[in-house]
Amino acid sequence: MRLTRRDALAVLAGLGITGGALGLSTLDPTAADGDGSSGDRDPAETDLLATMTAAAEVVYPSQVTGVGEFVETYVTGRSRDASRQAAMETVVSELDEIARDWHGAPFADLAADDRDDLLRELGVADSEPVPEGNVSERVRFYVVNELLYAFYASPTGGRLVGIENPIGHAGGTDSYQRAAMDGGQSDVNAGENDG
């Protein structure tokens, strides 16, 4: 099952972060110019994307592909909120420090099993998500739950568990009437037609 940039944009739209409102190119992590392009990123932003992608590779089911593009698009969109970006960068930096202490390398450079072990040994799986909490609670909130929300509120993530219109996604009023999932592609711009 392949995640796409369209999935990330659909989740962002559900959170009120729309390409139309911001200029779609600003949400394109591969764009050559403009805010959010890789050339414009400072080291903290680069670390943030690398670490979130590395975390997603263990947080998401193993059958999922397309994680890098999906996470980059999603995190770039979420980073439009400067305070959220700062909080995410802070916690990612702390996670990297712990990774260096425990395994001698930044989180993104660890093998997948080590990343998974580190998060579990840090107590993240059992931690409550608390934005102002201790490091485990903040990793749960800003890393793991951020990624889980992006995935399971996306049409593709929802489909993996049997619902093409998950809570948080403005997927219309047809799917609840159907006996089974249709085979259609998600609508990137869903959620922008609020009255």
Binding site: P61, S62, A125, D126, L148, Y149, F151, Y152, G158, P166
Partner: peptide, 13 residues
């Protein structure tokens, strides 16, 4: 709801 369950789960992957 799967998305809400996921946010409260004690595991991932």
């Amino acid at each position: 709801s799967p998305v809400i369950d996921a946010l409260h789960a004690d595991t991932w992957g």
